[in-house]
């Protein structure tokens, strides 16, 4: 399925790529996806990639307004069409993304996990508390039942994971969840979801959860792990 909109997190903020289709449909999809994860993205800068779509000042302003409502700021528009450049300039938006960004295409390549930014959180999350971040999250402490971590990248819990963890939350199925004690309520990677076995158990070693063969697999941390 070709997505209408792709949203990727980088250390410089979000890159939203508009795919093919009518402006209203594409922007509607963008708004829906962003609103569904609003707390995730709030406060972030957004660079828009539009490929060879011709964008007008009105259209850019519409998008800018949607983003502002969700607590984000549009700072750049990357497109091939000259009209897009003109419109962007008029709204005082940057037209060149940083050189480290991949070449412009209508559909963007995923930002590799190795290049994603990460944060370290040094406390235990109690029931009702959450950490949402578009990159990797390392937590030194426990995640109690009723608490959650939602990350665009990997999730590492240096402690007991007893609540919920969702890695690769923006669609990255390569993300992993690691914990010293993997006793989660529920884990998700990308669009996959898994819950622990019905019988109560206590894990004896650190474990890693990853997607293999279309499902989430939890493995013990072995010495030979590279």
């Amino acid at each position: 399925m070709t997505e209408l909109v792709t949203i990727r997190g980088t250390s410089e903020g979000l890159i939203i790529t508009l795919g093919p289709g009518s402006f209203d449909t594409v922007v509607g999809d963008m708004e829906e996806r962003l609103a569904a994860r609003a707390s995730f993205f709030r406060g972030g800068r957004v660079a828009l990639r539009v490929g060879d779509r011709s964008m007008s000042v009105d259209q850019l302003q519409t998008i800018g307004a949607i983003l502002e409502r969700l607590g984000m700021t549009l700072w750049a528009v990357d497109g091939d069409h000259p009209a897009t450049h003109v419109a962007a300039r008029e709204l005082e938006l940057e037209v060149d993304l940083r050189p480290s960004a991949p070449p412009t295409t209508a559909t963007s390549e995923p930002i590799p996990l190795e290049e994603m930014a990460g944060i370290v959180v040094r406390r235990t999350l109690r029931s009702g508390q959450a950490v949402h971040y578009p990159g990797h999250v390392t937590l030194i402490g426990d995640v109690n039942p009723g608490a959650e971590i939602v990350a665009g990248g990997d999730i590492i819990v240096w402690g007991r994971l007893r609540g919920n963890a969702h890695a690769g939350a923006m669609g990255d199925e390569q993300a992993v969840i690691c914990a010293l004690q993997m006793q989660p309520n529920q884990i998700r990677i990308g669009s996959h979801i898994a819950r622990p076995p019905d019988r109560a158990w206590r894990p004896k070693t650190p474990e890693k959860a990853s997607v293999q063969d279309g499902g989430i697999v939890v493995e013990r941390w072995k010495k030979s792990e590279s």
Partner: peptide, 16 residues
């Protein structure tokens, strides 16, 4: 009880 402890944890978080 599991449910009481869950709620107590939430309160501890709020008090802290």
């Amino acid at each position: 009880e599991v449910s009481a402890v869950r709620d107590a944890d939430r309160i501890v978080g709020l008090v802290e």
